[in-house]
């Protein structure tokens, strides 16, 4: 950090004294994830109110044709497996980076990015063919609310993965300096774990 002390007539700040062993960026991303969990929490709370407290006769409720709304749980299960796999590939990329294996890092990142992209595109197609819209009862509101919020996080996560992938191909990251990779990886793991909760809540229960 203090390596940037430019040799000039004017001195910079004194070297930073760190009072904690945890890296500021890593602590920052954990706090950010805490905040994100609360944001998802507010969506789950709305879901809880609409499903339990408002006490509808059945869940999912009946649509206009008189049959319950269909939730494509099997397609979403396959999508879940895709996203979970991507957690393993980014872990592989991180481990490769720590071992100095650049090919592993690059391959892991490309795979992670493609898996994430597949997940998001599948979700877009799922939205398109799902047969109900946002204005169809509170069920649809919570369905699109939770999956949509998660989809936004996947989108942001993909941007971060893209950045990391580009940097991996530009020769950034080394066994000793890979905080950018680590922080992005923590975020991506969070997106994956959150999806499992969303999936179980929205599609299964």
């Amino acid at each position: 950090m203090s390596a940037a002390a430019e040799a000039h007539e004017h001195h910079g700040p004194p070297p930073i004294h760190y009072s904690s062993r945890i890296n500021p960026a890593v602590l920052g991303i954990f706090l950010f994830i805490g905040s994100e969990i609360m944001l998802f929490g507010s969506f789950f709370t709305a879901y809880f109110f609409d499903r339990i407290v408002a006490n509808p006769a059945q869940w999912p409720p009946l649509n206009e044709a008189g049959v319950p709304f269909e939730r494509p749980w099997f397609l979403a299960l396959i999508n879940t497996l895709i996203l979970v796999t991507s957690s393993f590939t980014i872990h592989w990329a991180t481990v490769s980076c720590k071992k100095g294996n650049r090919a592993g890092l690059q391959a892991g990142m490309v795979l992670t990015f493609l898996l994430g992209l597949t997940f998001l595109l599948t979700q877009v197609i799922e939205y398109h063919r799902i047969g109900f819209n946002t204005n169809d009862t509170a069920f649809a509101a919570t369905f699109f609310g939770l999956t949509g919020l998660h989809g936004c996080h996947v989108f942001i996560g993909l941007l971060i993965l893209l950045v990391i992938t580009i940097r991996a191909f530009r020769g950034h990251f080394s066994p000793s300096a890979h905080h950018g990779l680590e922080v992005g990886g923590i975020y991506w793991h969070f997106v994956d774990v959150m999806w499992i909760v969303v999936y179980v809540t929205v599609y299964v229960l």
Partner: peptide
């Protein structure tokens, strides 16, 4: 904007949910 029913009683939403959140 999206005509959802989070808090619209007519669409099965729970009005007081807003105040709790």
């Amino acid at each position: 904007v999206m005509h959802t029913n989070f808090f619209e009683a007519a669409g099965g939403g729970y009005v007081l949910g807003y105040q709790h959140i």
